[in-house]
Write a protein that binds this DNA or RNA. Structure first.
Length: 238
DNA sequence: GCGACAG
DNA sequence: ATCTTGTCGC
């Protein structure tokens, strides 16, 4: 993918916060999506004792979810994990992975929050704005706000509230598992974002784009890491 | 001041 | 995120 815009990621936490406050104004909460034919999932994995970060993007065809393309990038990061500043840790690697991608997915799922963030600019919104592409935040836990437990059936939802405002939706993508927390990233509305997450969740808690990205990110880390990584193979399950 | 806190 | 084997439940 062509990345027309970027900025320095070599910032102090304070400078990063100011940049978030500035970029948040550019988020579009409305959807301009017609028919989705390609969607992507992005994720990153790390090597325990080092600063290595392996970022990947997996593109799937919609609605059959067949794999179309995978791209990755492995770099050194210096920014630590600070709640609220995740994009400054994973962003550089993710953008590099997108540069290595040839497909043009219409929507991208990110691991983490969209606007359900202290400054309204979680990693999904941040990347969405820089890539100027519809983006959805799919998080496994909450960073901001509260949400009642969604009903038991798959597809049940419950709003993520923050001072009376709905900033996202808790979504039950699979029965008897913890809900996912979906929020608008960029150029999409919450209803469509939730619809897409549910439409791409097939038998697992994580929607396929995110799940495939997770698996690929771990695979990339392992092959680029002959020793320090995990040696056992997934035990499987069917 | 204290606790919470995406990945 | 990462470290880890078996184990309980669907």
């Amino acid at each position: 993918m062509e990345i027309r815009e970027t900025h320095s990621f070599d910032l102090t936490p304070g400078e990063a916060v100011r940049l978030q406050e500035k970029l948040r104004a550019r988020i579009s909460f409305s959807g301009d999506l017609d028919e989705v034919s390609l969607l992507a999932g992005a994720d990153a994995s790390y090597v325990k004792g080092s600063n290595e970060i392996h970022a990947v993007v997996v593109v799937l065809r919609y609605p059959d979810l067949a794999a179309v393309e995978r791209a990755s990038a492995s770099i050194e990061t210096s920014f630590p994990y600070i709640p609220g500043l995740l994009a400054f840790r994973e962003g550089p690697a993710l953008l590099e992975a997108f540069r290595n991608l040839r497909s043009e997915p219409e929507v991208i799922f990110f691991d983490g929050q969209g606007v359900a963030h202290p400054r309204g600019l979680g990693i999904a919104s941040h990347m969405g704005v820089l890539l100027d592409r519809p983006a959805v935040g799919v998080a496994k836990s909450l960073l901001l706000g509260t949400a009642a437990e969604p009903g038991a059936p798959r597809g049940s939802t419950s709003p993520i509230l923050r001072g009376g405002e709905t900033i996202g939706m808790a979504v039950r993508t699979k029965e008897r598992t913890q809900p996912l927390y979906v929020s608008v990233g960029h150029r999409i509305d919450l209803v469509q974002a939730v619809d897409l997450v549910l439409a791409t969740s097939r038998g697992y808690r994580l929607p396929e784009p995110t799940r495939q990205a997770h698996l690929y990110a771990n695979a990339v880390r392992r092959e680029r890491n002959g020793k320090g990584g995990q040696t056992s193979l997934p035990s499987g399950g069917r």
